[in-house]
């Protein structure tokens, strides 16, 4: 088990955004989190990654406690994420964005930088070439020197993925990566995510597009009003009466 979540609860004022959510994630799979708008999916991600502190419950990453740690500590453990509303570093170049992702995998400090020592230079070169690799993986290497804010929307989403991958995570959380993309872009993105799994990384993905979800997930979790109402393989979810009633009722499934 790479991730184990026990009775996780987050309350905003009086609103229970997620309530007693528990689940386990096996190494190397793609898990989808689905649910209607406001179900608490993003809040779940925020609590898992330390962006928000949860009200109750526990999070175990690779068996070790990772509850309410600060975001950078969680990232150091090997969890990376993208954001639903794009949060690239707009006035930095695409390459620099991904170099930031390498922050934890490098260690040079202020003084070696000022002196321009050999180890500093070597490390900078390494960071740069690695960052370029990730850009290539995400298919945006041509934009390396463009300011991130000038990138088209779909490529900004790819940049976020490249940046997250650059932290060299074991577990990658993607919050609606396909939102706003056309079918072609969506298809390319699915291929990208599958390749990430082939790399041996575990992926949790929030997605509204059922074709995407059913197409790539190994397992699915359904949230509704902050509560986990179902969990299973795509086939099980497709046929689960609760899910059909609470969420999929109006929509064509699969």
């Amino acid at each position: 088990m790479i991730l184990e979540v026990r009775d996780l609860t987050k309350i905003f004022g009086g609103l229970k955004a997620i309530e007693e959510v528990s689940f386990k994630v096996k190494q190397g799979i793609i898990l989808s989190v689905i649910g209607p708008n406001g179900a608490g999916k993003t809040t779940l991600f925020n609590c898992l990654t330390g962006v928000l502190s949860s009200t109750r419950g526990r999070v175990l990453f690779e068996g070790a406690d990772a509850t309410n740690k600060r975001a950078h500590e969680i990232t150091a453990k090997g969890v990376a994420r993208t954001f639903q509303n794009i949060r690239v570093f707009g006035s930095m170049t695409v390459l620099e964005n991904v170099m930031i992702g390498q922050h934890l995998r490098s260690k040079e400090g202020l003084f070696t930088a000022i002196l321009g020592t050999d180890t500093f230079r070597k490390e900078e070169d390494e960071i740069r070439s690695k960052a370029l690799e990730y850009l290539e993986f995400a298919g945006i290497q041509d934009y390396a020197d463009t300011l991130a804010e000038n990138l088209p929307y779909g490529d900004q989403k790819r940049l976020e993925i490249a940046r997250a991958l650059a932290t060299e995570p074991k577990l990658l959380l993607l919050d609606e990566p396909a939102a706003g993309m056309n079918p072609q872009e969506t298809w390319e993105l699915m291929e990208l995510i599958k390749r990430i799994r082939e790399w041996g990384k575990t992926v949790i993905i929030i997605e509204h597009d059922m074709k995407v979800v059913m197409g790539i997930s190994d397992r699915i979790i359904v949230l509704d009003h902050g509560v986990k109402i179902a969990e299973g393989t795509p086939d099980e979810i497709r046929n689960n009466p609760y899910v059909i009633e609470a969420y999929l009722g109006k929509e064509e499934v699969g």
């Binding site: 990654t49 330390g50 962006v51 600060r70 975001a71 950078h72 990232t75 150091a76 990376a80 994420r81 954001f83 949060r87 690239v88 570093f89 707009g90 006035s91 930095m92 930031i100 992702g101 922050h103 934890l104 940046r163 932290t167």
Partner: peptide, 11 residues
């Protein structure tokens, strides 16, 4: 640029 994103990048 973005404090939350920076923290999530491990800074």
């Amino acid at each position: 640029e973005d404090e939350t994103a920076a923290e999530s990048m491990g800074i």
